[in-house]
């Protein structure tokens, strides 16, 4: 039981992070390898503000806002100028960004772990002597749930969302129809980075704390989650996140922490051999 809730709570974070990856992938066909480093950078900003003002929520807001800004700036200053003749160029630039951000954070804050406080108690409620989940876990579920619903509303119910989808799907046609395509791309990056920041704020208190490399492993798990779910599917990424979270928790609990990456690899092989475009791919849409 404890393992289930532990897994779901981490899975929710992976889901949010995978969602951020999917947002950018759908908009620009780039897998944003810098997502983890960007999230850590904004979390540093958030916790600095929290420490200075004593208010967790102010810091939280600052982190999300920093995510919006960092995402937009990254798109405007760097990603926009990437030559798209090869999809790998975007990957390499993103990896370059990772190094710059991690080096920069190390220079400013040093390579020590800094505490990342949770806004709610992490003591679990116990039912009949079995620890289930904590207030913080509930907060994680709520935050991720709200984000998923908001994004779904944005993309299906608003004009802006529609324009973003159009800009990503058919940039040239959209431009002819008067959609500000480049603005939509910037907005897409900003939103994705903000969701990434949220995931960072949710996962860091449960791990070792703030560190320039703190999200490296979260990134790997979340990318796996996004691939399992299907990179073109938002719902897929959420479910993929939960599946990976549960798998990691069960395997670490019953078989040992060392085996967990092997289990993830097996999951990927099984899923991808069955459905090469992830669980929620629209079948055959991607073949030539």
């Amino acid at each position: 039981m404890f393992l289930t809730f532990d897994g779901l709570s981490r899975g929710a974070v992976y889901a949010a992070f995978a969602l951020a990856l999917v947002l950018i992938w759908r908009a620009t066909r780039i897998v944003n390898f810098a997502q983890g480093a960007m999230a850590v950078a904004t979390a540093y900003a958030g916790f600095e503000v929290s420490a200075a003002t004593g208010s967790y929520w102010l810091g939280f807001a600052v982190a999300i806002a920093a995510g919006l800004i960092l995402g937009a700036v990254t798109e405007r200053v760097v990603m926009r100028f990437v030559d798209h003749s090869s999809p790998l160029n975007g990957v390499v630039v993103a990896l370059g960004l990772v190094l710059v951000i991690q080096g920069g954070l190390g220079m400013i804050f040093g390579s020590e772990f800094r505490p990342a406080e949770a806004p709610f108690s992490r003591d679990a409620f116990t039912v009949g002597g079995v620890a289930l989940l904590s207030r913080f876990d509930l907060f994680v579920f709520a935050a991720v749930g709200i984000v998923v619903v908001l994004l779904a509303l944005l993309f299906t119910r608003t004009h802006t969302g529609l324009r973003m989808r159009a800009a990503a799907f058919a940039p040239d046609v959209s431009r002819l129809l008067g959609v500000n395509v480049s603005g939509m791309l910037t907005l897409g990056w900003a939103l994705a980075a903000a969701v990434g920041s949220l995931a960072g704020m949710l996962v860091l208190p449960t791990e070792l704390g703030l560190h320039p490399n703190a999200m490296d492993i979260v990134f790997v798990s979340s990318f796996t989650a996004a691939v399992v779910g299907g990179l073109d599917s938002a719902i897929g990424s959420v479910l993929g996140g939960l599946i990976v979270g549960l798998l990691l928790s069960y395997v670490s609990g019953y078989l040992g922490a060392t085996v967990a990456p092997i289990a993830v690899l097996i999951l990927l092989v099984v899923v991808l051999l069955g459905r090469p475009g992830g669980l929620f791919s629209r079948s055959a849409a991607r073949t030539v």
């Binding site: 532990d6 019953y254 990456p261």
Partner: peptide
């Protein structure tokens, strides 16, 4: 490489 000791402490 796996900063979660929840299962072990459990």
């Amino acid at each position: 490489s796996n900063p979660n000791v929840g299962p072990q402490m459990g």
